Amino acid sequence: MNTISAKYKKDFNMDKSIEEKLVIRNKRFQSRLMLGTGKYRNIKEAVESIEKSEASIITVAVRKIEYLKKIGKSNLIDFLDWNKLWLLPNTAGCQTAEEAVRLATLGIEMNKKLGQLENNFVKLEVISDSKYLLPDPIGTLKAAEYLVKRNFTVLPYIYPDPILAKQLEEIGCHTIMPLGSPIGSGQGLQNFYNIKVIIENTKVPIIVDAGIGQASEANAAMEIGASGILLNTAIAKSGQPKLMAEAMKLSVISGRKCYTSGIMTKQIQGQASSPYYGIPKLQ
């Protein structure tokens, strides 16, 4: 039989939701994996890992780029194909809202220089804690409100506080980025239930950012409904970054498909998968 019967066509065809794209402020992205660009052993390794990951969005610290330009040193941004990638400049290193706003503005200029004239995305980081690198909620909210009013597409990095996440959504942030655990720690999803609450209570995409150390953790975040994952150290500091980049790509895809397909309800008792009829009764 060469054709699919009408009865099965809908199921076979294609649950389109499984293949849906990540959408942030009407911009569609092929991949739900985002990558940072720091900590690699060399530029070649970074470029090859990013290519292997097939990530669509790459985040770069504005402060680092400005510094490298000042000293005349090569930087990774010059070696990537920005016709295929979307730059997400970030305000890493900012301790105040005012600093973050200034770097965000420089980040948009950086987007334009790469030819991404419509790219007004910025990853907002305000971190005054130099030991644990936990984001400042008040500074983040203040800077986000200012930038949103000026038509920036703001992706704020936050501690997984459901109330703060909702406030940021309500002022106009198009994505929320709660941390799994501290930046670069590799501790995984230490804030699993808070992240789950944020996902349930907000309508914008939720990108789990920071702390992911292995593929199973990225997968777990996607299985509870995260819209994507942003990571860096897990790949850059692994023994084989290219291989780890591929593992992270597959784990994000797998987790999303699992979530979208509808996970079975857990049961207290075992449920037989084979029928009981035909089994002789014991006397």
Rank of each mutant, 00 (worst) to 15 (best):
L35E: 12
T175M: 13
L282R: 15
G139M: 12
E99N: 09
L168E: 15
E118A: 06
I199T: 06
A215R: 12
M244E: 14
R28G: 01
N232S: 10
E145A: 08
I58E: 03
H174F: 00
K249E: 00
T202R: 11
V101M: 07
K64P: 01
P241M: 08
K149W: 05
F121R: 10
L85Y: 01
M34L: 10
K281W: 02
D81E: 03
H174V: 06
K9Q: 10
S216I: 03
L87Q: 04
N90L: 12
F152R: 01
A247K: 15
T59D: 12
G278A: 07
S128D: 14
K44Q: 14
E51P: 00
E66C: 04
S274L: 09
I171Q: 14
I18S: 02
K10I: 05
G239W: 06
V252G: 13
V47N: 01
I65C: 11
D11H: 12
I183W: 00
G93Y: 14
K149V: 00
A143F: 11
Q214P: 00
L141T: 06
P205T: 04
A234P: 05
A220S: 09
A272M: 10
K7V: 02
G139A: 11
E170N: 11
W86M: 10
R256M: 05
H174D: 15
T91C: 12
I71A: 14
S49D: 10
L87I: 02
K257D: 09
K84M: 08
S5W: 01
I163D: 09
L80E: 02
R102S: 07
S254A: 14
I199A: 07
S251W: 03
V154G: 05
K149E: 12
L189C: 08
N219T: 01
K9F: 04
S254N: 11
I50A: 05
N191R: 05
E48N: 12
D209W: 02
E19S: 13
Q167E: 15
D161V: 14
I229L: 11
C258P: 00
R32T: 07
K142H: 04
M110N: 12
K69E: 15
N119I: 03
I24T: 10
E223V: 00
Q271P: 00
S130A: 07
L155W: 01
E217M: 13
Q95F: 06
L155F: 01
W82A: 06
E200L: 03
K69L: 05
M1Q: 15
V204D: 15
K266N: 08
S273L: 08
K44M: 11
I163G: 03
Q214H: 12
Y67V: 06
A236T: 02
L243W: 13
Q269A: 14
E145Q: 15
F121T: 09
C258S: 10
E170Y: 04
K142S: 13
S254R: 13
A226G: 11
K39H: 10
A221P: 04
N13K: 02
K237T: 09
L88K: 07
G278Q: 07
